[in-house]
Structure formats: C-alpha cells, structure tokens
Amino acid sequence: MSDPMVIAGRSFNSRLIIGTGKFKDYEENAAALEASGADMVTVAIRRVNLDQPDAPLLTDSIDPKTTTYLPNTAGCFTGEDAVRTLRLARELGGWNLVKLEVLSDVHLYPDMAETLASLKLLVADGFDVMVYCTDDPVYCQKLQDAGAAAIMPLAAPIGSGLGLLNPTNIRLVREAVTVPVIVDAGLGTASEAAAAMELGVDGIIANSAIAGAKDPIRMARAFKYAVIAGREAYLAGRIERKQYAVPSSPTSGMIE
C-alpha cells in the first residue's frame, strides 16, 4: 500500500482492474483474478447472474466481501437505461461505486452527450461514478466538472485488441484532469498496459485481453507485472530523447 490507487476515498492495492466477462466459467475468472493481483472487478449488471440461486453465481467464485465489485452499464445505449441499471445495482448489492458507460451503435464508441447527462443524474443521486469515455481531453474535463470520480478513456474500440492507438491524447487527458485516469478498452497484451502506465495514468482495466488469451491465467499475471513496471517507470522518469548517440561512459580522461 505504499503507492495505492485512490478512487472516491477508497484505496486499492492494485492498479489493475479485471473484468468478469468472456471467461469460460467463473472458476477460471477467479483464478485469473488471483493471478492478476487485482482487488476490483467490473461486473456487467445486465449480463452477469448475481441473484438466481439455481444458476452459477459469480459471488460463489469471487467474494464481494474481499474483492470490490464495480457494477457497470455494459450493454446500455441510452442514459435512461444506464441510470436505471445502476439504481437497480445499488438496490441489489448496495454498490455505490459504479462504472458508467453509454454506448453508441458506431463501433460501440461512447455516446458522450448521453454519458454526460446520465453522469449528472447519478452524481445527484449520491453515486461515485467512474466514467468510460472517449480520449477527448475537453470532454474529460467536462466529466470531471460534473462530478466524475474517475475518468476512463478508451485505448481503442471495445474488445478490438488494437492497443494504445493515441498515446498523445491519453497524456493530454492525464494533464487535463486531477481525478484518477484509468485506461479502459482496446488493449491486447501486457506491454500495451505498461506503455499506458508510463504516460502517468493511474490504472488499467483489462477484460478481453485476459479472458480471450490462449492462457488467461498467465496473461492475467503478465498484466499484473506490466502495470507495476509501467507505474515504476513513470515514477522513475525516463531519460530525455536525443537526436544523436550519447556514450554511456565519459569520453574525457580515457587511458591512452
């Protein structure tokens, strides 16, 4: 806990958040969670069984008492649906820290107008809202001003695995807001998570990259160390880029 990730007053040991979708079963999901070292998981309320006792329950494999559940609005295409879904989540599990995403039918990109409007409703209703969004630094400022607890810009389209397409914009988002910035969606492998962390973001969400890997458990472990390495590199500070070679050893005072 020497360098915790703090969101809405809550401290998290890990800066990696993993998902609960696309795994072959809840047991594999739980094993990936353990390998990742994460202490928070995203839960798509509209897609995951939480309260049907005759069916497998996520809570049987991942204990919400020891792992923070982050209910999200995956599958919502209107702000009205998103707000209703999160209100139901709070009634169901008492969850107040939530992830808001309102998608469009254009490659599942966030509908930012609907996102901003529903964020305002949720904040007024007492939620702590982490917001999935585009990598537009101006809109990210608007989300912060509206009360977002964390800004979650995409690296690439959801599930695409294309990696960090626009590192410049992610850096600009980091500079534009003071709340935590967590890169969400589109990463394909661990090195891309490290690269994002080196930009100074506070954390990473990974679902498809882990669950869709040939070995999800090993990939979860890779993401764990990539996020740690990226954070350490950012805090250490990289050397300045130079146009020409600079010797590692001094060239003066050499033995002739």
Rank of each mutant, 00 (worst) to 15 (best):
V83T: 09
P250M: 03
V246G: 04
A226S: 15
E114W: 12
E91D: 07
R47K: 11
G93N: 15
A8Y: 10
E198P: 04
T115F: 15
R15K: 12
G147M: 11
I18L: 07
L100H: 03
G94F: 08
L165G: 00
L100N: 01
F12M: 08
R238T: 12
D184V: 02
P167V: 04
A149F: 09
V177F: 01
D60I: 05
L199M: 08
I255P: 06
T67A: 03
T251F: 15
L122C: 01
F23N: 02
Y132F: 12
R241E: 05
F77W: 04
L57V: 13
E114L: 11
V106G: 11
A196I: 06
I151N: 06
T67K: 06
S2N: 10
A89Y: 07
M1Q: 11
A156M: 14
M5H: 14
R84D: 14
A30K: 10
L103M: 13
G161W: 13
L108P: 08
V183A: 01
D60M: 02
M219F: 11
P4R: 10
L88M: 14
A211H: 02
R221I: 07
P250F: 07
G161N: 12
A82R: 06
P153R: 03
N166L: 13
E240G: 11
R90K: 13
P247Y: 09
T20W: 01
L70P: 00
R90N: 08
I45K: 03
R231C: 10
E28T: 04
K142N: 09
G212R: 06
T251Y: 15
M40A: 12
L121P: 00
S14Q: 11
P56T: 02
I205W: 10
K242L: 14
I217Y: 06
L154Q: 07
L119A: 00
S208W: 05
D135H: 13
G188N: 07
G9T: 10
N207E: 10
D111W: 11
V227C: 11
L154T: 08
G159Y: 08
R87G: 13
M130A: 03
A38W: 15
P250A: 09
A220F: 07
P71Y: 04
A149L: 12
P137H: 00
V131R: 09
H107V: 13
R221T: 10
V83A: 05
I7C: 01
A233M: 10
M254I: 08
V6R: 14
F77M: 11
S191C: 09
T189N: 12
M1V: 14
V102R: 00
L143E: 03
L33C: 05
I62A: 05
C133D: 04
V179E: 07
Q243F: 14
L116K: 06
V83R: 05
V6S: 02
V43Q: 10
V227Y: 04
L58H: 01
I217V: 02
K22T: 02
I205Y: 09
C76T: 02
A31F: 14
A245I: 06
D125P: 12
Y234C: 13
A31N: 09
G75V: 05
Q141W: 03
C133Y: 07
L103W: 14
G253C: 10
D184G: 12
Y69A: 01
E232Q: 15
E240A: 14
Y225K: 13
L121Y: 06
V227S: 03
R238Q: 13
D184N: 04
N169G: 06
C140M: 04
A211E: 05
